[in-house]
């Protein structure tokens, strides 16, 4: 049986892990390879590396890093951040990334999704969507309690933001996800800007709405704070995978603890 995936995400700046990782016994918590090895031991199902500098000068550093990771860990990993065109994608895949995650460039040039998936296969093209709730045209305010109306199909609408959440696009997130899937995306990495960093749980309405409307896997991201949050996203909202960063970095839970909890709740996970 295909299992649900638990995916730690590492923010990378100039080849180093940022947003401090607090593991005991790590010689160098800034070294992405060292951190990746810890997650490997904890039975993470995949890793995501997001390059948050993503400037032109830093591409070489990123490529070197990807090569280093590929040499040292034998598990799937995705690289994202600042990808603009086919040659960026080719460079990262050649360096050893299994998948690339495209965000702003996919919105600006949707044909990039088609071109890339035709060339490299859908399975390695992840489209990342940063979405924010909009109610009656008023952005960013949650008018109801979070996750309150899961029984009924959500009437909520979400807007897609790009450039690290700074630029609104007027694209509706569910429509954009459908469009991306049609163009050949192999997976959607869906981050709720409203819930990210809150530790209140994943945005279940958003996750459900996207998951119900595309036939490709959806990774829920943003908001994980408790074990139940993973269960809710995977079980109630239909996510295929859950991504989390600080929860794992600060050692609140290990990946293995999350998976043991899920297994006990009857969710198929790899242990």
């Amino acid at each position: 049986m295909l299992t649900k995936r638990i995916i730690p995400c590492l923010d990378i700046k100039e080849g180093r892990v940022v947003k401090g990782v607090k593991f005991l016994g790590l010689r160098d918590a800034g070294d992405p390879v060292e951190v990746a090895k810890v997650y490997d031991r904890q039975q993470a199902d995949e890793l995501v590396f997001l390059d948050i500098t993503a400037s032109f000068e830093n591409r070489k550093t990123l490529i070197d890093l990807v090569e280093d990771i590929a040499k040292n860990i034998f598990m799937p990993f995705t690289v994202g951040g600042g990808i603009r065109d086919i040659s960026d994608i080719r460079d990262l895949l050649n360096a050893g990334a299994d998948k690339v995650s495209i965000n702003s460039a996919a919105v600006k040039y949707p044909e990039l999704i088609k071109e890339a998936s035709d060339k490299f296969g859908s399975q390695c093209i992840v489209v990342a969507i940063d979405a924010k709730l909009i109610c009656c045209g008023v952005p960013s305010f949650r008018l109801s309690a979070p996750n309150s109306n899961l029984q009924a199909p959500s009437q909520d609408k979400w807007e897609v933001f790009i450039n690290g959440g700074r630029t609104p696009t007027e694209l509706e997130a569910v429509e954009w996800a459908k469009n991306a899937a049609e163009l050949g995306a192999g997976e959607i990495l869906l981050t709720s800007m409203d819930f990210d960093g809150t530790k209140d749980g994943y945005d279940l309405n958003l996750t459900r709405a996207v998951s119900d409307n595309v036939s490709i896997p959806v990774i829920a991201s943003g908001g994980a704070g408790k074990l139940e949050h993973f269960y809710d996203a995977l079980n109630k909202a239909g996510a295929d995978a859950c991504l989390a960063a600080s929860l794992f970095h600060y050692g609140e839970f290990t990946v293995k603890q999350v998976k043991e909890y899920l297994k006990q709740k009857g969710v198929a996970v790899r242990l």
């Binding site: 295909l2 995936r5 036939s215 896997p217 295929d240």
Partner: peptide, 15 residues
């Protein structure tokens, strides 16, 4: 063939 909860690509860990 996608449908009935079957997502395609088949992506992840299976037995």
């Amino acid at each position: 063939i996608p449908g009935k909860g079957l997502k395609v690509p088949h992506m992840g860990w299976n037995q």
